[in-house]
Write a protein that binds this DNA or RNA. Structure first.
Length: 584
RNA sequence: GCCAGCGUAGCUCAGAGGUAGAGCGGCGGUUUCGUAAACCGCGGGUCGUCAGUUCAAAUCUGACCGCUGGCUCCA
């Protein structure tokens, strides 16, 4: 395990990285005198610079550029700053169209210009005093990037680097990257036989193998039970439905690019659902609802299909078909705060149960394009904030990042190697209740619009499994492990006893399995270790005679000869409590 | 979708114009073993797909499909 890496806001590091990007630009300039320059900021771990070059860069160029950078660092060139009038700046950057564009957007009449060696850049600064201060950096990749991040603009070539204050910090960072690669869910998914994605079946479509499906089933059972306890009703809704519904909802207008084309069914157009909300609304609307029966909470593990551009697909974390752990809460506005607080409590309970201890919470407010009126928006946003404060949760405001139909709360959690994951989201919706006329009869006998909340606590089963795999590096907590105990008979004469133990475990819901192969104990242990099975029960003459098991934990720890009945009881306790501990 | 790279056996990878190789896994035997790889043997690939260049293509060219890293977008 590698400790979670907390990104530190460190100005000197940022200055160093930004300076490194200028050195990168100078190195590229020396190779391509006609290069045009985009921007070159510091990033979370390093820096990049965007270039418009006469030929595409390839990975082979990176060491060459890096060597050139090292030369520039060794030359210890001073960074010098100058202020120019915009006019002078325009003539200085006459051959740099991207820089000219930037100059026009600067409000001041004066612009800052930094020079080091043969490279001059439009730049606010600050920078290190000279290139010799750049200690530890490495170019890591090249990529295409649209000028100003807009896909209608030309694509520039971006060179990414990482940079740190010391060689040690750089080495640590690279080691952390390796560790992350070892935990990559795509790699572990294959090694642990959890899932597959097939070219023949289509990209972004996941096939869950028995072991992956077991983990999913355990999560789903837990999820359903927990929702039932917290007052949710479980529902099921169909995967396809008439297009007209999606026109009414507005999705056909606003979300069409993510939807698959309609299919013809007896002359009617049907679409595959990209979201579950409409089905839940239809269920709500099957009878006239009284204020007395609210809130209604409909939960569904609903499988949806969305078109995603081919370039964005990624293992389990970005797919085209996925199952959301969805729910929609229909309530009165005066119940909204309680409901949101309840969802927060559930969400954090889930995050905590699955062993994620680092998370942060964001409240997203009204974006520029929105539905509903501003007053309702403000009230709902305040309600979300109050719910957060009531749960004494620290949060940050993400201004303008709400969905067009309402404000939302996002919870992002970090895995064991410091990677961030989108976790629970809670969204208030002012749009659908209006479009579908979702209402209830109030105390006053009048119809009132409901407050509708969309929420998921795991996100999707696919993405959530990806986060679990990477968080645990495939060594799942006992309650989630696809195989919880392997029984290893030493010789064939111990097979009968081994099978008896297997049957006893399984009859009590414990996922035990005998390794009955004609293999050495060493081999069987090795296989179980590689599969990250929590417990290995070695049984030979002694164990058969005494009705015991010799337990090896996946950590390598050993507990010799304990009565099988005792072991089974302890194991059941660990599973029932969803403990993250292995120790019996 | 866009930019760059990549696609060889189930897996991990070597081979770079002259007809395909290793390790592991698999299969058949032998072995019956005390905590991370027992031993012997045997199979297995129209080298992502389709075109083209060539006497000859896994190798060169093009298109398509898919994957990887980014960009844009997101559960």
């Amino acid at each position: 395990m590698v400790p979670a890496k907390k990104p530190q806001k460190d100005d000197s590091l940022e200055i160093m990285r930004h300076s490194a990007s200028h050195v990168l630009a100078e190195a590229v300039l020396s190779m391509f005198p006609d290069a045009r320059f985009g921007i070159g900021p510091a990033t979370q771990d390093g820096f990049y610079y965007d270039f418009d070059l006469p030929r595409p860069l390839t990975p082979d160029d990176l060491p060459v550029i890096e060597a050139k950078m090292k030369e520039l660092v060794a030359a210890d060139l001073p960074f010098t700053r100058k202020e120019l009038s915009k006019k002078d700046a325009r003539s200085l950057f006459a051959k740099q169209p991207y820089k000219l564009e930037l100059i026009e957007e600067i409000a001041d009449e004066k612009v800052g210009v930094y020079r080091q060696g043969s490279f001059v850049d439009l730049c606010r600064g600050p920078h290190v005093a000279s290139t010799g201060e750049l200690k530890a950096f490495k170019l890591v990749s090249i990529a295409g990037a649209y000028w100003r991040g807009d896909e209608h603009n030309p694509m520039l070539q971006r060179v990414y680097g990482v940079g740190f204050a010391t060689e040690q910090a750089l080495a640590d960072y690279l080691k952390n990257l390796e560790e992350a690669a070892r935990r990559d869910h795509r790699k572990l998914g294959k090694e642990l036989d959890l899932f597959s994605i097939h070219e023949e079946a289509g990209p972004g479509l996941v096939h869950w193998h028995p072991k992956g499906a077991t983990i999913r089933r355990v999560i789903e059972d837990f999820w359903k039970d927990e929702h039932f306890k917290r007052g949710y009703d479980l529902v099921y809704t169909p995967h396809i439905g008439k297009l007209d519904l999606w026109k009414t909802s507005g999705h056909w207008n606003f979300y069409r690019e993510n939807m698959y084309d309609p299919i013809d069914v007896e002359g009617q157009e049907y679409v595959i659902k990209p979201m579950n909300c409409i089905g839940h609304i239809l269920i709500y609307k099957t009878s006239q609802r009284s204020y007395r029966e609210l809130p209604l909470r409909y939960a569904e593990l609903g499988t949806v299909y969305r078109y995603e551009r081919s370039g964005v697909l990624h293992g389990l974390s970005r797919v085209r078909g996925f199952t959301q752990d969805d729910a929609h809460i229909f309530c009165r506005f005066d119940q909204l705060e309680d409901e949101v607080a309840g969802v927060l409590d559930l969400a954090l309970f889930m995050v905590d149960t699955f062993g994620f201890s680092n998370y942060s919470i964001y409240l997203s407010t009204r974006p520029e394009k929105y539905a509903g009126d501003t007053k309702v928006w403000e009230e709902a946003t305040d309600t979300l904030a109050r719910a957060l404060e009531r749960q004494t949760l620290a949060y940050e405001i993400d201004p303008g990042e709400g969905v067009f139909y309402g404000p939302k709360i996002d919870i992002k959690f970090e895995d064991a190697v410091g990677r961030g994951w989108q976790g629970p989201t809670i969204q208030v919706d002012f749009n659908l209740p209006q479009r579908f006329d979702v209402n209830y009869v109030g105390e006053d006998g009048q119809e009132h619009m409901v407050a509708m909340v969309h929420r998921t606590v795991l996100g999707s089963m696919e993405r959530f499994l990806a986060s679990l795999i990477e968080h645990y590096g495939g060594a799942f907590p006992v309650w989630l492990a696809p195989v919880q105990a392997v029984v290893i008979p030493i010789a064939d004469r111990h097979l009968e006893y081994a099978r008896k133990l297997e049957a006893e475990l399984r009859s009590e819901g414990v996922r035990g399995v005998v390794d009955a192969r004609s293999e050495t104990v060493n081999m069987k242990i090795r296989k179980a270790q590689l599969e990250k099975v929590p417990y290995m029960l070695v049984v030979g003459d002694r164990e058969v005679a005494d009705a015991t098991v010799s337990v090896r934990l996946r950590s390598g720890e050993q507990v010799n000869a304990q009565p099988f009945a005792d072991f089974k009881q302890k194991l059941k306790g660990i599973i029932a409590s969803r403990s993250l501990e292995l120790k019996l």
